[in-house]
Amino acid sequence: MPHATASQTIGPYWHLLEDKDWTDLTRFGAQGERIALTGRIIDGDGALVTDACVELWQASPAASDQWDGFGRAATDKQGEFRFVTLKPGPVPVSPGGKVMQAPHISLAIFARGLMTHLHTRVYFQGEALNAQDPLLCALPDTRRGTLIAQEQAPSLWRLDIVLQGDGETVFLDV
């Protein structure tokens, strides 16, 4: 068999796929602690990335017919994305396993100028499990914070994403 198909950029016109309802993962009636997650995307010049596609996927809570675990948002003129979702619980290392990672959300960033999407994670400031999370523990102190969202107001979490340069977000080789 051939190797996996090559990725190509999502380009500037991916909004033909956009459905604004997809920014709210609770739209099918899933129950849990509802939160908003927002942030902006910044390039290596500090410019706002206004044409990105941000995809959110979380393995916790477990998927069901009321809960896809998946959302997609466009960045706006301020480079901002915004989701409404459920706060995840601890996520097993192995599906169904007992060894846990700290609660986190996966983000995939697609945009014109990105030939392949970038994987990153959003953790939550103040979670006790952060201190034992395998990924957070493996990162240097100077970079760990790029993955940890801060609570700006009750149930409103924020994490900015820097594609390149000072404060560059940790992107993952998955």
């Binding site: 097993p92 599906p95 100028g113 594609l163």
Partner: peptide, 19 residues
């Protein structure tokens, strides 16, 4: 030019997880 990370991608210390 200004959109690609310059730091190397970070491998998950556990390998791929449920996420």
């Amino acid at each position: 030019g200004k959109r690609h990370p310059v730091q190397p991608l970070v491998a998950l210390p556990t390998g791929q997880t449920a996420t």
